Amino acid sequence: MDFQQTVQGIKDLSIQGATAIAVAATEALAQKIAQGASEEELRSATKELVEARATEPALRNALAYCLTNYKADPEAAQKAAEHFNDAKKKITEIGANRIEDGMTVFTHCHSSTVERIVIEAHKQGKKIRVRNTETRPKFQGRITAQKISEAGIEVDHYVDSAATEAIRGANIFLFGCDAITSDGRIINKIGTALMLDIAEKYDVPSYSCTDSWKFNPATIMGHDEEIEQREPAEVWEDAPKGVKIHNPAFEVCSPDSLTGMISELGIFKPEALITEIKVAYPWLIN
């Protein structure tokens, strides 16, 4: 996939999932570096990748790492990609340990991280079942249902409005993460906050499964993470006059509604994870 194909793939969601987007963007920038692009050209390419989709701090952090280090270290882009691959393995291991034999796992949207955790637990011989929501309007939940069922795990697929029924019968709620703010708030697919409220009502433990590079350092200085607003036509083409369509891709979730966060650094409460991030990756803050 060439540079422009990557940019377009991020825009139209053919490349989706925060980690997949970050890795694809890093590989696209690595192509430019290998072609001998100037620093100005690399900064322009980075800007184009960043603007392809909002609410993607993992993408921004990975590209920032590459731009900062590529002159001193020609392997900087490769090392950024390796971080994501290594983190995937650690998160998968830790997350699978949290799933017990006989559990029903609920999830929302499509998180490749959650997908790997569930499949790993299955490979360990644990008998599990998955409940998931369709995730309108782009139906990313179907990706989750298909991939997990192909791994030999039984899946119950629910319309979004049946989330209460789905969660009430689950033992654990695992979901992804698109951004982490300095005050511990989690930004994830629209609908996540509502489902966290339901999980709390029915005492279902809830964990965000994430690479810690999704932390947004700009929030330390009071800047908010931009919430992507997608096209109204995704919800309703030719909507009647006077009907305004709201189609936010993500929403903010309170740290108080989470049991914990599963990252490559371990399982922590959101506020504690931020402290660990500052120690493990000081360059993210600086």
Rank of each mutant, 00 (worst) to 15 (best):
N132I: 03
W236A: 08
A62L: 14
D211G: 04
R131H: 14
Q4D: 14
P282E: 00
S206L: 03
A145D: 07
G152K: 05
A145I: 03
M1I: 08
A193M: 08
I128Y: 01
T164P: 10
H223W: 10
A30E: 10
K244G: 07
F268G: 00
K244S: 14
T135F: 15
W213S: 00
W283S: 08
K88S: 12
K269M: 08
F106A: 15
G176E: 02
V50D: 05
E165N: 11
H223P: 05
E48G: 09
R43V: 08
E165H: 14
T144R: 04
L284H: 00
A25Y: 01
S206A: 15
Q16L: 11
N85C: 01
I285M: 06
D101W: 05
W236T: 05
A272H: 00
R230L: 09
L273M: 12
K32E: 10
S112I: 07
N61V: 08
I220V: 12
N85E: 04
I285H: 01
L196V: 07
I187G: 07
T107C: 13
K71Q: 15
L196Y: 07
L284K: 00
T6Y: 12
T55M: 06
F106S: 12
A30T: 06
N69T: 11
Q8S: 06
T164D: 14
G260R: 02
N97A: 05
A18E: 11
A77C: 07
F106R: 11
